[in-house]
């Protein structure tokens, strides 16, 4: 079971970070987006190649008002 932003998802191991972003309707060149998988940053340059492991916890973050 892969968690996407804290929610159960139908993502499967082997899908890439790019697949995750497509699922969220985000383009690969979206501004102000960062991705962590299992509490490690996945750099933008690796989005198309980084394959999700089993039981990955994926966080897709962006700018919000604050501070």
């Amino acid at each position: 079971m892969i968690l996407l932003n804290g929610e159960r998802s139908d993502l499967r191991a082997g899908e890439t970070v790019a697949d995750v972003l497509a699922r969220l309707g985000l383009a690969l060149n979206a501004r102000g987006v960062a991705v962590a998988v299992d509490a490690e940053v996945v750099p933008r340059t690796a989005w198309e190649t980084f394959a999700l492991p089993d039981d990955a916890r994926v966080e897709v973050l962006t700018a919000m008002q604050g501070g």
Binding site: N5, G6, L24, G25, L26, V33, A34, E59, V60, L61, T62, A63, M64, Q65, G66, G67
Partner: peptide, 10 residues
């Protein structure tokens, strides 16, 4: 100006 980082809200 400051910004925070939060989960994407589609």
């Amino acid at each position: 100006v400051t910004v925070a980082l939060r989960r994407v809200d589609v």
